[in-house]
Design a protein around this nucleic acid. Structure first.
Length: 113
DNA sequence: ACGCTGACTATTA
DNA sequence: CTAATAGCCAGCG
């Protein structure tokens, strides 16, 4: 688990790609899963490098602790994030994921088994 | 090497 | 409710 052979980014990308469709997760959750709890900024920063990766990283499934689409401005265009989320069946209102609590996917609870 | 920046989070006022 | 503060750590000039 959490192979440290790869760069920190690759670990973040790996977890992000493990997020099931129609689900969302937070930076802090990924950070904690990687053992860098408290450094949620590193996750977001890693996502910044995700742009152009192969396979593409579903960064639109990564939101902040409030379920807010804080990173939408980093996409091709800000509305793309909400567009992709709604496309997967996730309701988004006021840049915020509706029922975020129900759609929340925690790697530390789903993957560590 | 130093300081600034940042897709975060939590606490305090 | 908003604003400020602190902790976090990798990249860049």
């Amino acid at each position: 688990m959490a192979t440290k052979d790869d760069s920190f980014f690759q670990m973040v990308f790996a977890v992000a790609r493990e997020v099931p469709p129609g689900r969302v997760t937070s930076y802090g959750a990924i950070a904690k899963y990687l053992g860098t709890s408290g450094s949620a900024r590193m996750v977001g920063w890693a996502m910044n490098q995700a742009h152009g990766q192969s396979p593409a990283v579903p960064a639109h499934r990564i939101v902040n602790r409030n379920g807010l689409l804080t990173g939408k401005h980093h996409f091709a265009y800000p509305e793309q994030m909400q567009e992709l989320l709604e496309k997967e069946g996730i309701e988004v209102k006021e840049d915020q994921v509706v029922l975020f609590q129900e759609l929340y996917w925690d790697p530390t609870k789903e993957l560590e088994l």
